[in-house]
């Protein structure tokens, strides 16, 4: 079982290296453990996250791809759908034909279009809804700080 998961993860790693989707870099932290990945996601254009790079950690279960990985941003990200401590990829929508690439792309689009219905960060959600200019200012400040500017 583990070898199935490892093989699959290795294939995905190869694919993501040879043909990386725009704005995404992802791979295992070390090849000694293919079940822990680090991903960098670029903030989508036309959003306050534009220009930002958001690192995240992905942890895969031993029975991947039957079960989805969990993902956690390892940076300060002010977003209605980001729990400051944990972001679980919606497991109810998971199916084994999904992939790391699809997860990361859907996270990217989540950045662009927050899902207001299930806020994980209630404060961020409220700010996003009620004080959009403040929200955008804060996000932009975080983006700059993350780049060391």
């Amino acid at each position: 079982m583990t070898s199935v998961a490892s093989k699959r993860l290795f294939q995905e790693y190869k694919h993501l290296t040879q043909d990386p989707p725009e704005g995404i870099t992802a791979g295992p932290v070390t090849e000694d453990d293919l079940f822990v990945w680090e991903a960098l996601i670029e903030g989508p254009e036309g959003t306050p996250f534009e220009g930002g790079i958001f690192p995240a950690e992905l942890k895969f279960p031993k029975d991947y791809p039957l079960m989805p990985p969990t993902m956690r941003f390892t940076c300060d990200i002010w977003h209605p759908n980001d729990d400051p401590n944990h972001y679980e990829h919606a497991s109810e929508r998971w199916s084994p034909i999904q992939s790391v690439e699809k997860i990361l792309i859907s996270v990217m689009s989540m950045l662009a279009e927050p899902n207001d219905e299930s806020p994980a960060n209630v404060d961020a959600a409220r700010m996003w809804r009620e004080r959009r200019p403040d929200f955008e200012r804060k996000v932009k400040a975080d983006v700059r700080r993350a780049l060391g500017l």
Binding site: T17, P20, T25, G27, T30, E31, E38, L40, E42, G51, G52, I53, V143, R144, L147, G148, L149
Partner: peptide, 22 residues
């Protein structure tokens, strides 16, 4: 080499974003 390539891609992504912002 693969690890090196990945590392370089990561670094370049961050540096490029910074350059763009500057």
């Amino acid at each position: 080499e693969r690890a090196e390539i990945l590392k370089r891609r990561r670094e370049e992504m961050v540096l490029a974003a910074r350059r763009k912002m500057e």
